[in-house]
Nucleic acid binder design. Structure first.
Length: 502
DNA sequence: TGAAATGTTGGGGCG
DNA sequence: ACGCCCCAACATTTC
């Protein structure tokens, strides 16, 4: 090698806030040139950070900055503004030789990054992007005929057929900082809530950063993996990994999770294999959501199935508010919504229940739920959020059919059998016997009095009747089918059979 | 990664 | 002994 080039290399951090298994950082380290670790806060994006995400981002950046300083002796360079302006400007200002980043897959990010790459290259600066966030990038997974998958199972089968993802990279051993870059202070970005400070529950629930992620993963693999396939649906048990916010911010990579899970399963013999496969298939759903968003960029705002455009939603801000605040009168729904508000997270099974309730019992547009989740979830992720809401609403690819309506009472009894989860998040029902915990309105006056519950006062009466709401939802769905007429290709299997027999 | 309605079956009570 | 009815229990169909 000749004299090393001393022109700095930029590593532009985005949703990859970690040092290990970070290909952009590794590529920069390989140059041997001084490194600038850049993060740009862009408030102009269409899907800007929600409140809970801002809280997480603050702490995640703070942790990453500390890790950089401890391991390499220099910290993050923080800039605010449009990335399309900030990144090329900083590269020019520092006379950088190269910019490395790890790819994002949101439509706006793809367009933005393509523009930045072109601008940098025009300035004679090397611009290189890497894969750090997905096991299988969307353009690498194709159907037999070269199309893209719209159904999960064959998608994930095809992914698996591509082979195991590469093992995770270690953090670079040595990096030299480039000290000349001016940086904002994290405090001045004001990502944390003040007046009121609603983040107390978040602080109690999470340790943002890669260490927090590794602790969760290790704990999950040791205690949660055995039994995961069954217990994952139980919000009353600590049975899930809770890695979703760490994954979203890239504090841990799916490759790291994949290989750690495989290692744990191999060490535990064949009994763990089934559970490991189930857990990895949940990572697969994340991959699938990114795949859908990449190939259908309007996923966050438009029905994947266009026939849903005619759906007769009953927009009602008061009903939406009841749902948001966890006072629908259905204990499992209210428990979920309050867990979300308090911790910035909700158990997956309960997400399905509350989402079904909003879209079907209350007939609010799925985009209203999507927006609320976006603002309140610490794991808010454009692809996962949009794909999941469309899945529940029935408007999505490979979606639950619209007539599949969760019964919040039965779901509660099945997955929170003792009411432990409800009692935790709806303390006013703490003393209600298990028999009535998911349907307090069926308890006698004496039982309610004994439990200190006054329906309609200390806890709301059900805002809708389940049977009636179900009927209205089905009627709304039927109206869609009527509008379509008979020429549509959407007749049910039953109708097909009836027609064939006639 | 549903729930409810409807259909079927088979055991047991009873006239 | 026999047929009839009831009704769980389970299966299938429909929403």
């Amino acid at each position: 090698m000749k004299h090393p080039n001393r022109a700095p290399v930029l590593v532009w951090f985005r949703q990859d806030l970690r040092l290990a298994d970070n290909p952009a950082l590794t590529a920069a380290a390989a140059c041997g040139a001084p490194v600038v670790a850049l993060y740009v806060l862009d408030d102009s994006l269409e899907w800007g950070l929600g409140g809970a995400s801002r809280w997480w981002l603050h702490h995640s950046l703070s942790v990453l900055d500390g890790e950089l300083r401890r391991q390499y002796g220099f910290g993050l360079t923080l800039r605010r503004g449009k990335a399309a302006e900030q990144v090329p400007a900083l590269a020019a200002e520092l006379q950088a030789q190269a910019v490395h980043w790890n790819r994002c897959y949101e439509p706006a990010a793809i367009a933005r990054d393509a523009g930045i790459k072109a601008a940098l290259k025009q300035d004679g600066i090397v611009a290189e992007s890497h894969n750090a966030a997905l096991l299988y990038e969307p353009w690498t997974v194709k159907t037999q005929t070269g199309g893209w998958f719209k159904v999960y199972s064959p998608f994930w089968r095809a992914c698996r057929a591509l082979g195991d993802p590469p093992p995770p990279l270690p953090a670079p051993v040595k990096l030299t900082g480039h000290q000349d870059a001016r940086s904002d202070s994290l405090q001045q970005w004001q990502l944390l809530p003040t007046r009121p400070d609603w983040a107390g529950g978040l602080r109690d629930s999470w340790v943002p950063g890669s260490m927090g992620a590794e602790t969760l993963l290790a704990g999950f693999l040791e205690h949660g993996l055995a039994g995961y396939a069954e217990n994952r649906d139980r919000p009353d048990l600590p049975a899930t990994s809770r890695l979703s916010p760490h994954l979203h911010f890239g504090e841990i990579s799916p490759r790291q999770i994949w290989h750690a899970t495989r290692f744990a399963a191999d060490a535990g013999g064949t009994t763990l294999a089934r559970h490991a496969e189930k857990f990895l298939s949940e990572i697969g759903w994340r991959e699938f959501a990114h795949h859908l968003l990449y190939h259908f960029p309007d996923l966050p705002s438009r029905n994947f199935r266009a026939d849903f455009d005619a759906f007769p939603w009953e927009e009602d801000t008061e009903a939406l508010r009841c749902w948001q605040q966890g006072r629908t009168g259905y204990p499992i729904v209210d428990a979920g919504m309050r867990e979300l508000w308090h911790t910035g997270w909700m158990h997956n099974r309960v997400r399905m229940i509350v989402a079904s309730f909003l879209v079907k019992h209350l007939r609010q547009p799925w985009t209203a739920g999507e927006a609320w989740f976006w603002d309140t979830l610490v794991d808010a992720d454009l692809a996962n959020n949009a794909a999941s809401w469309q899945w529940v609403a029935g408007s999505g690819a490979d979606a639950a059919p619209y007539f599949r309506i969760f019964n919040p009472i039965l779901q509660g009894e099945r997955f929170d059998p003792d009411g432990t989860y409800v009692r935790r998040w709806v303390p006013e029902l703490k003393a209600v016997p298990a028999r009535y915990i998911h349907k307090p309105w069926e308890a006698s006056a004496a039982v309610l009095r004994e439990a200190g519950v006054s329906l309609g006062n200390s806890y709301p009466a059900p805002m809708v009747d389940h049977d009636a709401a179900r009927g209205l939802a089905l009627a709304a769905f039927a109206s869609l089918r009527d509008k379509e007429g008979n020429e549509g290709g959407n007749e049910t299997a039953g109708q097909k059979r009836a027609r064939g027999a006639a």
